[in-house]
């Protein structure tokens, strides 16, 4: 049975205030210039309820940019303890594209051998989703990737219906918020009808720009390994690594040691890394296995549309559009896909 509740907009601030007292409360805030970021808030007035995808995806809370794996002490041999650092938090107003991104990361890090740092931290985070009532901008392809509507991955899911939010209660963790805060009311049939109406309206707004079925994509990539398109975007690429950093599903990392000043103790950390970096696939002998920018660009696209489909039966592009928005060289995911489709005459 689906459980729906109602939260009056006037009660949102109380919700934020109650929850932010118990743990960190992260929500999208405006940084100006139509840019947003998830940050810690204590009041609803700081929250940007209407926002386009944040600069960094919420993956930064699940696998932080810098993350301690081990604390070591070499005063007497190679002594260590493995640790996870975490914060209990509520992640509020996560769009459906980012929920899909978190689901991708969940799959990767729960694959064997399991990554406990990720898995422990993930369960300290309560996720409250927020529906997009409109398309954010021309860069998103969420409808094509089937991420314009909620597909799970949240504890509560909010849909803004004007004076109130209709809230889907998906987990016990979500239900606990309903019970503890006592701010929610039961939804009636008319509320649910309103939600249906919005979803109906969304079907006309959120359209597949490509005119082909998403399931044709892996096959398209099968045929496109040698396409000229990779050279074209490779020539334009600065290898700045913006696209991988902002991507909600890029999870490559580097592992390194950070010494304390006593030179005996320190920690082993992992840091976000990027397959677009010059040295990413270099071995210590000096050989670099993806030296050409075009090879690195191809690799990134295949890691979104082909390889994870082989491995996990899932696309690792959520359609959020961040990579296109952030690219100084204006390399567009949408255009690249369009060109590949055109080149291969896929229908």
């Amino acid at each position: 049975m689906q459980i729906y509740k109602i939260l009056k907009k006037s009660n949102l601030d109380s919700l934020v205030s109650i929850l932010s007292k118990k743990q960190k409360f992260m929500a999208p805030v405006s940084k100006g210039l139509n840019k947003f970021a998830f940050e810690s808030v204590t009041s609803s007035k700081d929250i940007a309820l209407k926002y386009i995808p944040t600069i960094l995806a919420p993956k930064k809370y699940f696998m932080p940019q810098y993350e301690t794996l081990i604390e070591y002490d070499t005063k007497e041999g190679q002594n260590m303890k493995a640790v996870v650092e975490y914060e209990n938090m509520v992640l509020f107003a996560v769009h459906t594209c980012d929920l899909a991104g978190i689901q991708c990361l969940n799959i990767v890090f729960s694959d064997r051998p399991k990554d406990l740092n990720y898995l422990v931290r993930k369960n300290k985070i309560t996720i409250i989703g927020l529906e997009c009532n409109e398309v954010c901008d021309e860069y998103s392809t969420c409808a094509f990737m089937d991420n314009d509507l909620p597909n799970g991955g949240y504890d509560l899911f909010f849909t803004d219906l004007g004076e109130y939010f209709i809230v889907h209660v998906n987990t016990q963790m979500g239900d606990a918020i309903i019970n503890d805060t006592k701010l929610f009311e039961d939804a009636t049939v008319s509320h649910i009808n309103e939600l249906e109406k919005l979803r109906e309206k969304k079907r006309k707004l959120f359209i597949n720009q490509f005119g082909i079925d998403r399931q044709k994509i892996p096959e398209l990539f099968d045929k496109s390994k040698e396409s000229q398109i990779w050279d074209d975007i490779g020539n334009r690429c600065l290898s700045c690594g913006n696209c991988t950093n902002v991507c909600p599903t890029c999870y490559c990392f580097d592992v390194m040691d950070v010494q304390n000043l006593d030179l005996k103790t320190g920690k082993r950390i992992r840091v976000w890394d990027s397959c677009q970096n010059e040295t990413f696939a270099k071995v210590s002998g000096g050989e670099s296995f993806r030296e050409a920018r075009s090879d690195r660009k191809r690799h990134r696209f295949y890691r979104k549309f082909k390889y994870p489909v082989n491995r996990y039966s899932r696309f690792f592009c959520t359609g959020c559009g961040r990579c296109t928005r952030t690219c100084m060289a204006k390399i567009s995911l949408l255009e690249t896909l369009e060109l590949l489709i055109k080149e291969n005459k896929v229908k």
Binding site: K31, G32, L33, K35, A37, T54, I55, L56, K60, Q65, Y66, L238, S239, C240, G241, N242, N245, V246, W272, S274, N277, E278, T279, T326, M328
Partner: peptide
């Protein structure tokens, strides 16, 4: 490091200067 300043700039979630 043989990678761009953008890497760390994005870690810090700055608004890109090109956007400005």
């Amino acid at each position: 490091p043989d990678k761009s300043v953008c890497i760390e700039c994005k870690f810090n979630e700055n608004i890109c200067m090109y956007e400005k």
